[in-house]
C-alpha cells in the first residue's frame, strides 16, 4: 500500500521534473556567469584553478557559510554524544596485526604530506582546502584503524578548528578594515602559476584546510569514542 502510493507520487514528481528540464539544453553553451569567470578569472583573482577562484574569492561567503556548517555539525555531534571527559578505562581491544601496524605507521606521514600539498596548491591545481582537509582526516582515520588505542588530544583538534575559522574571518575582516568589501583580496595577484600568487586565496584555503582536517578528525574521534560504550 505504501509502495503503491509512493510510486504514484514519485511518478508525478518525476513528470514535473522532466517537463521542467526540457528548457535546459544539455551541453550547449548558454550565456552564463561561468563564462565570465573562465575568461577573466585568472587576471581578476590570479588563480589558475578557476573553481578554486569561484569557491573562495567570487563566492567566498558561501565557503564561509560552508565552513560554519561543518563547524555546526562537529559541535552538534559533540552535543548529541554529550561526552565530557574521555574515560580512561575502556574495554581492552586486541592490537592490530604487525603488518597493519607498521604499514599504517609508515603511510601516516606520507598521506599527511599529500594532504598538505593539496591544500597548499589549491589555487593552482584541482583540489583545495576541503579536499586536502579530507585527505588529512583520512590519515588520522588510518591511524585509528591501524594502531588502536591511540587518540589525538581532544582540545588540540578543537583548538586548531577554531583557529582555522578565526583565521578565515580575520582575513575577511581585514578586507573591511582597509575600507574595501568583506573578503576583498588585499594581497597582490602575483604572477599566475607560481605558488605565492592569487591574493588571499591560498591563505583562505590553508585556513579552510586546517579547519576541515581537524574537524573531520574530531568527528571521527567522537564517533569512535561513542562506539565503545554501545550496549552489546
Amino acid at each position: 500500500m505504501r509502495k503503491l502510493i509512493s510510486i504514484i507520487l514519485l511518478g508525478m514528481v518525476a513528470t514535473g521534473l522532466f517537463m521542467s528540464i526540457s528548457q535546459i539544453p544539455f551541453g550547449e553553451p548558454g550565456e552564463r556567469i561561468g563564462d565570465h569567470f573562465i575568461n577573466q578569472g585568472v587576471n581578476e583573482t590570479g588563480a589558475t584553478n578557476i573553481v578554486a577562484a569561484v569557491v573562495v574569492s567570487y563566492r567566498g561567503f558561501d565557503t564561509l557559510g560552508e565552513v560554519s556548517v561543518l563547524f555546526t555539525a562537529a559541535m552538534g555531534l559533540g552535543a548529541v554524544i554529550g561526552l565530557v571527559r574521555r574515560k580512561k578505562t575502556h574495554t581492552p581491544i586486541e592490537p592490530a596485526s604487525l603488518i597493519v601496524y607498521t604499514g599504517c605507521r609508515f603511510l601516516f606521514p606520507v598521506i599527511l604530506l599529500v594532504g598538505t600539498y593539496i591544500v597548499i596548491h589549491g589555487h593552482l591545481t584541482p583540489g583545495g582546502g576541503f579536499q586536502g582537509g579530507a585527505v588529512i582526516a583520512s590519515a588520522f582515520l588510518l591511524m585509528y584503524l591501524g594502531c588502536r588505542g591511540k587518540r589525538i588530544r581532544e582540545n588540540l583538534s578543537r583548538g586548531l578548528e577554531s583557529l582555522g575559522g578565526l583565521l578565515f574571518i580575520l582575513l575577511g575582516v581585514t578586507g573591511l578594515v582597509i575600507g574595501r568589501d568583506f573578503l576583498f583580496s588585499f594581497l597582490p595577484e602575483g604572477e599566475a602559476g607560481n605558488l605565492i600568487s592569487a591574493g588571499i586565496i591560498p591563505l583562505i584555503y590553508m585556513a579552510v584546510g586546517l579547519k576541515v582536517g581537524s574537524e573531520l578528525t574530531g568527528i571521527i574521534d567522537h564517533l569512535i569514542e561513542d562506539t565503545d560504550e554501545l550496549p552489546e
Binding site: 561561468g34 565557503t63 555539525a73 576541515v212
Partner: peptide
C-alpha cells in the same frame, strides 16, 4: 572549458551533505 559555478556549488553541497 566547462562552467565552474556548478562545480563550486557541488563542492559546498557535498560538504553540507557530509555534515
Amino acid at each position: 572549458m566547462v562552467d565552474p559555478v556548478p562545480q563550486a556549488l557541488v563542492l559546498t553541497a557535498i560538504v553540507i551533505g557530509v555534515a
